[in-house]
């Protein structure tokens, strides 16, 4: 996984609450067996007309935001389906950080598996950042994960909280599976114990 340390870039405002993962990446893009190339489906139905032509008015299609690396959005971002295609699509489109006042659990978790930093900040701060982000190409934000700060275009620095374990994983781009496999003995012991205590759960 790609590590996340610092990020500097334009932030795009998406001033909507309860943005669901069906909206982030609609079902017709879930038929792939790959992780890559999903950027073309990102917010597809908000960006295109019924014939599939780009309308050009969606925030990420406006010239100032085409290179955006950060998304500022309303509360409960990423609700609904567990599809990891949602963070894959964001990543493929160059978005490495989403700022909102709250996230749905599964999406939040999926971000950390893909080198995307979801930043939770108080509602008023997010509102102010949405305003900042409306300044188009001038809305350059800096994110520093080690310091746990977001610096707004006017230079003001805001701190955010993050679970220390998740922070470390992201900073180092750690391979979770590799780390867990180091616990093989504990897992073996657990299985042995379970076979004795709940023999009805035994399988291959």
């Amino acid at each position: 996984m790609q590590a996340f340390t610092t990020l500097r870039g334009v932030a795009a405002p998406l001033d909507m609450v309860n943005v669901d993962t069906d909206m982030i990446i609609p079902k017709q893009f879930l038929k792939t067996i790959e992780r890559t190339g999903l950027g073309r489906g990102l917010f597809y139905e908000l960006r295109t007309d019924a014939k599939g032509n780009k309308k050009g008015d969606f925030v990420l299609d406006r010239p100032a935001y085409r290179a955006a690396k950060i998304l500022v959005a309303g509360r409960n971002f990423g609700c609904g389906s567990s599809r990891e295609h949602a963070p894959w699509a964001l990543l493929d489109a160059g978005i490495r950080c989403v700022i909102a006042s709250s996230f749905a659990d599964i999406f939040f978790n999926n971000c950390f598996k893909n080198g995307i930093l979801p930043v939770i900040l108080p509602e008023e701060t997010v509102k102010a950042m949405l305003k900042d982000a409306e300044n188009g190409a001038n809305a350059v934000f800096s994110v520093d994960l080690a310091a746990q700060t977001v610096t707004r275009p006017d230079g003001q620095t805001v701190s955010f909280d993050i679970d220390p374990a998740r922070k470390q994983h992201l900073l180092k781009g750690l391979d979770d599976i590799g780390l867990t496999l180091e616990k093989k003995r504990s897992i073996d012991d657990y299985e042995k114990r379970q076979r004795q205590e709940q023999p009805w759960l035994a399988t291959r």
Binding site: R83, E84, P87, I106, N109, N110, D176, T180, I187
Partner: peptide, 30 residues
Amino acid sequence: DSHTSTHGAFGALAFGIGTSEVEHVLATQT
């Protein structure tokens, strides 16, 4: 799949996960 919560009806702790976690469970059962 997010609707894995269905199985909670039996008193099982059941929840939806992303694909990276599917891989993690396949490899480690944890």
